[in-house]
Nucleic acid binder design. Sequence first.
DNA 1: GGATGTGAAGTCGTTCACAGCT
DNA 2: AGCTGTGAACGACTTCACATCC
Lengths: 200, 200
Amino acid sequence: MYARCLEELEDRGEAVVSSAQLASDCGVNAAQVRKDLAYFGEFGIRGVGYYIKDLSDDIKGILGLNREWRMAIIGVGNLGTSLLLYKDFLKKNYKIVAAFDVDLSGVVGKVSEKIGKPVEILHPDRLKEVAKQRKIDIAIIATPASEAQNVTDKIVAANIKGILNFTPAQIKVPRGYTVKNVYFTTILDNVAYLLQSKRK
Amino acid sequence: MYARCLEELEDRGEAVVSSAQLASDCGVNAAQVRKDLAYFGEFGIRGVGYYIKDLSDDIKGILGLNREWRMAIIGVGNLGTSLLLYKDFLKKNYKIVAAFDVDLSGVVGKVSEKIGKPVEILHPDRLKEVAKQRKIDIAIIATPASEAQNVTDKIVAANIKGILNFTPAQIKVPRGYTVKNVYFTTILDNVAYLLQSKRK
DNA sequence: GGATGTGAAGTCGTTCACAGCT
DNA sequence: AGCTGTGAACGACTTCACATCC
């Protein structure tokens, strides 16, 4: 959040920012900003503020955003295709280096056509082999929910430590693996509840 | 989360569940489950547990999941199209009742072809008019980030109180509006940081 | 002077442990 | 006997307030 705000300030040509301003931009408390940043070191200058460029670089270093993260998409349906075409990845250090689907034939044409160049769709059984070759860091599960655990097991076997799960299934992984779940209807449930409870 | 677990238990033919089992299914503490549920009322029976069907219905009532929520997609690019085609909405009480885009011509054909029937794409300026007609509860922003605030202002003018924002822009709304942000690269940043900090 | 870094206070959420029902 | 509901202990995060330093 701070990294994103800082980039915006940088683009605007600003050089220094105070915790108060950064807080207001991010919609949080100023003390919060200082605590968060101070946790990782002393980045600010008393009486002045934070040098935007330096702080931005420091944060990116801390978050690991200054290196490339190589990703695989598993499941090339609507969502998977959408992610393959997702332009924001290009600006950031995220790169999709492989796409997997059980249906090899069906999707290739459509996706390739949209993306402008042929996309190679591989069978999920080849995950382990390809993960090593292409140094995959993160796997994105965009299959039907019923396949989620099955696919997860293949990801674990391939020793890919980061997983982004777009299915509603609660997947099980050994410790040491990082899983983030993103499920649209759960987010909508949240909005719906807040709307309903405010209305009354 | 509980609602989803309960549905699964229901499908499996179970009738009663204890806080301990529900907790284990959801990956949380048993006391947590009891506190969460007790907050809204006394749903359990001491010495027995919770009747799954009743609890499931109660939770859905509390969350507002037993009524239809009518949504509009604004921005019919890759992501917007993907959401229009998203099948999980059909099983839940979420319904996309309108789609908006500044480019009326470009997308109609492609989406319609995929969806099997013609999809009507409207200009965002018609949001207010259509919101009233079609009783839109929630607006989904799937435009480029640069358009987010612009579109948000139209949503506010149309008096749509729930907003799901898929752009990285931090949008501003008057109080009384509910906004949820879903931004893929932020989630990936999180995964990347956790991976990096574990590795060292 | 002015903004950071940080102990202390305050707030919120989680977990424990057990009284109270069924 | 067993499991819920809940006060109390605990822990984590947020905010305050000010000493500290540029």
